[in-house]
Amino acid sequence: MTSSESAAAGVPARNEEIACFYRENSRELWAIFYSMCSDPERAHDAVQEAFVRLHDHQGEPVRDLRAWLLRVGQNWLRDVARRKSSGCSLLPGLDDFTGGAVDPRQTAELHERQQQIRSALAELNEDDRRVLVMKYSMDWSAAQMAAVMNCSAAAIDMRLSRARRRLAEILVEQGYQHE
């Protein structure tokens, strides 16, 4: 087998490896990016961008895949934040109005509520926001979060409770009307 043939045979294996890593880690990466930018679509784009760049990566082999993806996604988020100050973006959820199956008023209200919660989340400190994102977007237990954040499960429970209380206070200050 020549070197070009062996390289060609290695491509599907690498693609499969990347796909497997995506299946197992993309949600967690999304949660980390989301806790950085408080924008679900942008966090998702950051995940996609990081994996696309990994796919196109031709340089030295990546030793710590997760750290590499995190760095690429984080840099991409920074670039977007910098560009956003001088550019414009589509209205959030504009595509949802075109289907016609959902009541546009309800959709608009839902978007407004979601936006209020997002901005309230953005006001929390980073650790509080992170535990809420891990708990509610990935459904991790206190023990699992404790392993990640290097503290006890009891401390995580306390932090979760405090973060929820603080978020409720911010929402009330913002005039959030719950049903």
Binding site: Y22, E24, S26, E28, W30, Y34, P40, E41, S137
Partner: peptide, 10 residues
């Protein structure tokens, strides 16, 4: 509703 549906379950 915040987590994109395209993301696989972890």
């Amino acid at each position: 509703s915040e987590v994109p549906r395209a993301l696989p379950e972890s």
